[in-house]
Nucleic acid binder design. Structure first.
Lengths: 204, 204
DNA sequence: AAATTTACGTCAGCCATATTGACTTTGCCT
DNA sequence: AGGCAAAGTCAATATGGCTGACGTAAATTT
């Protein structure tokens, strides 16, 4: 139950917090110090709220299994990358072996993920979702899909393309190739497009 | 130091994980079960990676002060909403009083945030950033701004508008009014636009 | 004036998820 | 044989959440 205090929001911005206050204060300070312009607070905060709600739906389902977000991430990437090695999973998630170990063990013990010895390199334990695991992964993805589809459908034609490109550009440049590879050739081309407003830009 | 294992990425997708594997497996399963179409995995994963890197920059700075993300969030929203009440901050962050208490106390003790009694309601401790606190908030926002600006500049003209609308639509519908109010009238109108897939095109 | 509610804080304890560093086992490769 | 890589494990620690219970001051209602 991630979302319980919805109704207790006293409306977020209190009566005492008139936008006038904010404007006045921010205004005076901005004038004095803006050497780099005003940050895009709207996008910064929209990212915060959007991401929060984006992850909230799966949380409620996961808690039924006594799983958390960590389990979700592992399950998701294993489901999406069958036969992935533990090492590669660590690189994707950017966590330590120990952190992964705990949640992975639970997922394996409870039959969501299975490990098969690598056919070429027998040191590897290649990870796969079981039917059960795949089912859960799909269920969670479907929840997020519904939210995304709704948001995209409120956009102009090319909206999804633009969003994909934006998000891709938000990724550290040196990691983009890896992410691009992971998304697959189709998505990759969708994500790159002719990325420039003018003609410049940074592809390659 | 959030980002240390960059160089140890054995390239993310291992040699053993050929896209053929994934395609084969996913393909066979999809055929059998697609009653709702394939989830937009690209957007799901792009959100994950983008948000991760988006929050990574500030982390490195924060760790110099022995602060974490929790501190960042508090500092940010106090800086953006001068004279905010504790109750409202709790509603925005959706955490408990206890959780907030810990980090808020540190921020106050170390002179980043100050509390002033409410002029009307003396039970309130209205929160403000100090110069020091404001400076840090700005520094962190600037880091995120740089990344966002770079991403936006790789987009077509109306790109930022589209992204804003997308993110806004990703927020729970019942919370949108609150977020909208927080962003302020200017940003709000930018975020709403005529949200239809058909005759849009985002002016204003 | 008394009762209730609100705003804020705090104590005590718990849990999930992450970290580091060291060490082992197994197996690949030269 | 020696070295390196893949995976697992132990122990200790930090962070950021959580619940429940209480306390105090001030505002509001009855």
């Amino acid at each position: 139950m991630a979302d319980v205090n919805f109704m207790t929001l006293s409306s977020f911005t209190s009566p005492s917090l008139t936008k006038t206050d904010a404007a006045r204060l921010a205004g005076s300070r901005d004038a004095a110090e803006t050497s780099e312009g005003i940050p895009p607070y709207d996008l910064i905060e929209l990212l915060f709220f959007a991401y929060r709600d984006f992850t909230a739906d799966p949380d409620t389902v996961l808690s039924e299994f006594d799983f958390g977000r960590a389990h979700h991430r592992v399950l998701h990437f294993v489901d999406r990358n069958p036969a992935i090695r533990v090492t590669d999973l660590l690189a994707i998630l950017r966590i330590t072996k120990q952190s992964l170990g705990r949640v992975l063990k639970q997922l394996v013990d409870e039959g969501f993920i299975e490990q098969r010895p690598g056919p070429l390199d027998r040191r590897q334990r290649l990870l796969h979702t079981t039917e059960k695991g795949h089912g859960l992964a799909r269920k969670l993805a479907a929840m997020q899909a519904r939210r995304i589809d709704a948001a995209v459908s409120a956009l102009p034609e090319t909206g999804a393309e633009v969003v994909r490109r934006f998000l891709f550009q938000m990724i550290d440049p040196d990691l983009r190739p890896d992410v691009g590879r992971m998304l697959g050739p189709a998505a990759l081309s969708r994500v790159q497009g002719s990325a420039g407003p003018a003609a410049e830009s940074s592809e390659a």
